Computed example of a mutant assay.
Amino acid sequence: CGNCHEMNIHIIRGLLIDCTSLVKSLFTAETFSFEECMALKRKYDIAGVWFGSSRIEDSRNDPPLSFGCNFSREQMTGIVACANAYHLFCVSTLRIEDMEALFACKKGFCIRVNNIRHVAVLFDALLENTFILPHWQSVLDKGRFLLSKDGTRYVTASSLSSALSAARNNITSANLGIRKAVSRLKI
């Protein structure tokens, strides 16, 4: 879909891996219009990634949310220090308990994001250093763990993906600092 520049690699990956039955027919279709592409993206944004057999699965059948991580106290302290140094969240001082609740996917936990690009860079760096699993955007989306800066809406997987793409296209000293801080967490 050459005109679908809005649909970035993370969304495409999610569609191909998690929504195989939905996109399989598109590979054999004679045409795939921009409108069809955007309709597919909207379905992805609304339903997260679990489409199953061309219908949205009952959420009771979904596996529990997990980042697949197991941070030491020292590593968690480093993550919190990084988040505080780069003001990732709208709190005066982020606490270790806040990040533990986030990474444990504690039901009902939610935190406002100060800078979505920097949050996306943090999670991408955690992935690159094999601290978390590749579906982190979906976990944050489905768990509704992140609120927009103004507190009016939850941060979606699509907005995280777009923010990460924008951060990769505009490398800043903050982005580099976050990545460096995460790389130092390796034991």
Rank of each mutant, 00 (worst) to 15 (best):
N3G: 14
C4E: 00
C4K: 00
H5M: 10
N8M: 12
I9K: 10
I9C: 10
I12E: 09
R13G: 07
R13E: 09
S21P: 04
L22S: 10
K24A: 06
S25W: 03
S25N: 10
S25C: 11
A29P: 02
S33R: 10
F34V: 02
E36V: 05
K41E: 02
Y44F: 08
W50V: 12
F51A: 07
F51P: 02
G52S: 05
E57R: 09
E57W: 04
D58S: 06
S59H: 12
N61Y: 15
D62T: 00
D62P: 00
P63V: 07
P64K: 07
F67Y: 11
N70M: 07
S72R: 12
C82I: 05
A85V: 11
L88Y: 07
F89I: 04
S92Q: 14
S92Y: 11
S92T: 15
T93I: 15
R95L: 15
I96D: 06
D98G: 04
D98P: 05
A104E: 13
F109H: 02
R117C: 13
H118V: 06
A120P: 00
A120H: 00
L122T: 04
L122N: 05
L122K: 12
L126I: 02
L126Q: 05
N129K: 02
I132Q: 12
L133F: 04
H135Y: 06
W136M: 08
S138G: 10
R144I: 02
L146S: 04
K149R: 08
D150I: 12
T156W: 08
N169W: 00
S173T: 15
N175W: 06
N175I: 10
L176E: 11
G177Q: 02
G177V: 03
R184K: 14
I187M: 13
I187F: 14
